[in-house]
Every structure is written in C-alpha cells, then in structure tokens.
C-alpha cells in the first residue's frame, strides 16, 4: 500500500480535517506553537493570558521542546525539533482545546481512543504523530522562522511557548480521525494476535509487583 501525502494548513478547514485518513503523511504550513505542561499550567491553572490570538493565528499545538537557543542579540537558533510523549497531557487537553480551538494536536505516541472520542471529536480535532522517533533534523528544516518565544523567563527554554512559522514541515502521520479511531490501537490489536504464541516457554516472575497485569492488550499509558 502506498501512503498518501497531504499538505495541510495549521489553521485547517473542517473539510480538510474530514478528508484525512489514518496513516496519511502530512506536511504543515503556517504558524504552530509549542505547549506542554508548563504552558498548560500557566494558562489554565495560573490563569495567565495566552499571548497569542488562538485559534485565528494557529490551531496547531505541538507537544515539543526544541533544541534551540536565544542568541545574545535576541535572535533564535533552532536546530532540531521533535515531539514529546503526549499521553501525559491528557489532564489539561480538554480545557485547552475548549479555550484555544486547537484542531491539530501534534506529538509523540498519540492519545487513547477514549481521549479522541471524549474531546477530540467533539472539538473537530485530530492527532498528528511525529515520525520515528524522531526526525528532528527534517522537522527543523521545515521551520521557516521562529516568530516569538513567550514565557521563557517564567518557564525556561524547554517549557516556553515557541511560535514557529512552518513551511512544508514534516513528515507527520495522521493518528486519529473524526470518528475517534486510534491508529496505534489498531496496530496494537494486530500485533496482539501473535503475542500468545510468542510468550510460549516463558513464565511470570516468582515475585509479583503491585498493580501487575498479565493482559498484554493493556498499554502502559
């Protein structure tokens, strides 16, 4: 099967999102911002004003800390760009999406299909996964310009809100759709068919651990 390549705006129309299929390879154009636990806590728990017009300027939230620095003259040096694992942000994402109108959540590893059904689908949003992980240099090439870094003083470089202008930034993989289907769970289910056979000739540890499961359809996230 050949994978489909799509160019997508970071302020996508509902129609453009509806056309995406699981496993499509996406390249992004437009403004994107990074936001992870530091930004979520500051915006949602400390109620700080978000320093961008969202979603008008961007509907693309990247779970990312770039390998980047601010030069002494105030300009930016952005090298490699990759995502961090998204499942840790489920606590804040429903409120964040409601507040900012984010339509593209971009990160590593995706969310559960329950997350998709509960608050991605009602918000018309989908999840894009980075590839690899991670293709930091390729994504870095897609950075046309660093427009701003917000909250660097409060949060530090790694947690700050970086605003990036993307030019065919990618590749990303469509990992959820408007029905709430999860690409990773689909793959897990296929792999699970082989696991029983694979585990033949092994045995559980003599000393058990609290919370331990032997159900290998479970995930750790």
């Amino acid at each position: 099967m050949t994978l489909r390549e799509v160019r997508l705006s970071t302020t996508p129309t509902p129609e453009a999102i509806a056309e995406l299929r699981l496993g499509d390879i996406v390249y992004l154009d437009g403004l994107m911002y990074t936001a992870r636990e530091g930004v979520y806590m500051r915006a949602l728990e400390d109620k700080a004003n978000i320093p961008m017009e969202l979603p008008a300027e961007s509907a693309a939230n990247f779970h990312c800390s770039p390998a980047a620095t601010i030069r002494q003259d105030g300009s930016f040096d952005m090298g490699a760009v990759t995502a961090t694992a998204s499942f840790r942000f489920a606590k804040w994402l429903p409120e964040w999406m409601a507040k900012t109108g984010a339509k593209l959540i971009i990160g590593k590893g995706g969310m559960s299909s329950k997350d998709y059904r509960d608050y991605f689908v009602p918000n018309g949003a989908i999840y894009l996964s980075t590839v690899g992980y991670g293709t930091g240099a390729l994504l870095g090439r897609g950075v046309e310009n660093v427009e701003a870094v917000h909250w660097n003083e409060e949060l530090g470089l790694a947690q700050a809100m970086w605003v990036i202008r993307c030019n065919r930034m990618g590749p990303f993989i469509v990992a959820s759709d408007l029905e709430g289907t999860c690409l990773f769970e689909r793959e897990n289910a296929k792999i699970a068919e082989n696991l029983e056979h694979l585990y033949e000739g092994t045995k559980p540890a003599v000393l058990k651990r609290y919370g331990e499961t032997d159900d290998r359809s479970d995930e750790v996230i």
Binding site: C64, S65, P66, A67, G79, A80, V81, T82, A83, T84, G132, Y133, G134, G136, A137, L138, L139, G140, R141
Partner: peptide, 14 residues
C-alpha cells in the same frame, strides 16, 4: 543525512 548536512542535532530530544 539532513542532520549531517545541516550540522543540526538529529533529534529534538538531545
């Protein structure tokens, strides 16, 4: 290849 050509880190998580 891109990392070597551009002399940039291969992954954003360095």
């Amino acid at each position: 290849e891109a990392a070597k050509e551009d002399r940039r880190a291969m992954c954003g998580d360095t």
